[in-house]
Structures are given as C-alpha cells and as structure tokens.
C-alpha cells in the first residue's frame, strides 16, 4: 500500500516545525512515532500534503519530576521508555501497568506517549490513564504555550483540541497527594490488539482513606470515557466490599459500549465492572499488608 505523495520536512527546532505547520494552513501533519499516522496514510485514510517529522528535534525525550512534583513527559518519549522505567511503578503505578499493554513490543520502540494522546483513538490506552490521572497537555504554537486539560483535549474519535499550527510538546501528570495507588487492566484478544474493554484507575491514598479518585475507560464508547465523576463515590471512604461494589457499579454505568466483533455491549460492561472491582480489591489488599 502506497501513500499518496507528500512533501517531507525534518526540522531541527520546534520553532521551525511550528512555522512549517503555520505556513501550510491545515494541510500539514506532525509525524512522531508514525505508528498510527503511517498506517493511516498507507490506507489513504489521511492524505496530508506535508509531513513535519519532529524526531530530529533535540530535547524532547525527557521524563522527569519537577520541583512541584509534576511528572513531565516530553513529546519524543517512546512507549518503551515508560515500559523500561524502573521508577514509574512506585511513582505512577497506573502508567506503569499500561506501559506493557500498548500495542506490541516492536511498535513500542517507535510510538510515543504524546503522539498516542494526540491520535485520540477511542481504544487508545494512554488517554484513559491520563484522564484518570487528571493530566494535561502542553501545546505550543506561533503565539507560545498553553495547557489543555486531558478532559478537554480529546474531543471525539481521532479528534483533539490542538489548532493546526500547534504541537503537543509535553504531557503533565499532577503530583500525587499522599500515596499513589492504581492500575490499568485491559482485555485484548491477543498481543497488539486494541482493547475490547479496559479500565484505568488512579487513587491518591491518605493512609487507608481515598483522597482523590480518578478513572477512565477505553474501548467502551465512541471516545475515551471519562469516569472520574463515577468513581468519586470513593472520595473520603476506605476501600471495603461495600464501597468497592458501589464504585464498580457507578463506573460500569458510565461505560457506553457497542456490540461488535470484540464482544457484546453487555459483556463489555461486565468486564468494566469486574476490572474496577479487581483493581480496587488489589489496592485494598496491599493497603492491609502494608498496615
């Protein structure tokens, strides 16, 4: 499969990349890991006139915690960089759990965390984790930078809130208040498949009490499902059979699955409930062990 012809630029600075996007008024596309964009242009689902390859821009491949405790992930951090991080499981268990489940190990060497958020696939894994974590995107355009809350960043399937002349330069995960707990569970038919249903849960624990509670779902709606309001029934509570059941019910009700070749709507909703219960039970058990 051959993409239609396009022009290609590989600028060495962000300013040049933004100028190229700006000069091409919506006909240009950013190329980062290429693991979604290249398949799309090969199938001619997209036929951009210009690809602006950002892979040669230095200084975008960082992953660090700043003085305020925000985790900052630069635009060129690959899926596998998160997967191989030795610190992430303790600081951000939700991201660490998802990092092994995005696509397959070879796609993970190229695909980027930020590119995946930009792609806004309703079945994408990272968007669900970022919505659960209350994350933000930093967009940079000709007029400078602005921050976009992840809940407002994904507008719909394959649609994000960036202007045509903006690049997502980093993703920010706000500091945890207390101890980070959470996970990501995904049902896939085989390695590399997109989610039949998946659940991201991120809790800030103050001892045995839930401080902040975040949740989002992939694969069970026309876009990433924001289930933060649903799981907020846990805030101020301890994790016990009753509170876990209530949270799992509320989150399952927030899902909006369709019946397709991956399973029936009922089945997918059932999976959501099971996964929420499983994640919360695991957190409750490890709290007990720690106490």
């Amino acid at each position: 499969m051959y993409p239609s012809r396009f022009a290609y630029e590989a600028p060495k600075t962000l300013a040049e990349a933004i100028a190229l996007l700006d000069a091409n008024g919506g006909e240009a596309k950013v190329l980062s890991g290429g693991q979604s964009l290249i398949p799309m242009v090969k199938l001619r689902f997209a036929s951009p006139e210009l690809l602006v390859d950002i892979n040669n821009i230095p200084g975008l491949d960082y992953m660090r915690i700043d003085e305020q405790g925000n985790l900052r992930i630069g635009a060129l951090v690959r899926h596998e960089d998160l997967e191989h991080s030795t610190t992430l499981p303790a600081t951000h268990p939700t991201l660490a759990a998802a990092s092994h489940l995005v696509a397959d190990p070879i796609v993970r060497t190229r695909g980027t965390f930020v590119g995946s958020l930009c792609h806004a696939d309703p079945q994408g894994d990272w968007a669900a984790t970022m919505i659960a974590l209350g994350g933000r995107i930093v967009a940079q355009g000709p007029k400078g930078k602005r921050e976009i809350d992840m809940r407002e960043f994904v507008l719909g399937p394959f649609t994000n809130a960036l202007a045509f002349n903006e690049i997502a330069v980093e993703a920010i995960v706000p500091p945890v208040k207390g101890k980070a707990a959470g996970s990501y569970l995904k049902l896939e038919r085989r390695v590399g498949d997109f989610a039949t249903a998946s659940v991201a849960v991120a809790l800030d624990m103050n001892g045995a009490t839930v401080g902040r509670a975040g949740c989002a779902l992939a694969g069970v709606g026309g876009r990433t499902i924001d289930a933060n309001d649903a799981i907020s029934v846990l805030v101020g509570k301890t994790l016990n059979a009753e509170s876990i059941e209530a949270a799992a019910e509320a989150v399952a009700a927030a899902a909006d699955p369709r019946t397709d070749h991956r399973g029936s709507a009922d089945y997918k909703r059932h999976i959501v409930k099971t996964f929420v219960t499983r994640i919360l039970n695991n957190i409750a058990n490890s709290e007990q062990k720690a106490a």
Partner: peptide, 24 residues
C-alpha cells in the same frame, strides 16, 4: 504493522520497516 516479518534494527532497536519512511 502486525506481523513483524519486516523487522530491522534502527540504531539498535527493532522497528517494523513497513511502518517507517526511508527518509526517517
């Protein structure tokens, strides 16, 4: 991008060469 038969190493890391442009 599914089968991996086209896998080559680019700067030592495995890449599916059907999903990378030569210019990259």
């Amino acid at each position: 991008t599914s089968c991996g038969a086209c896998t080559v190493l680019v700067d030592g890391r495995p890449v599916k060469s059907c999903t990378m442009f030569a210019v990259m």
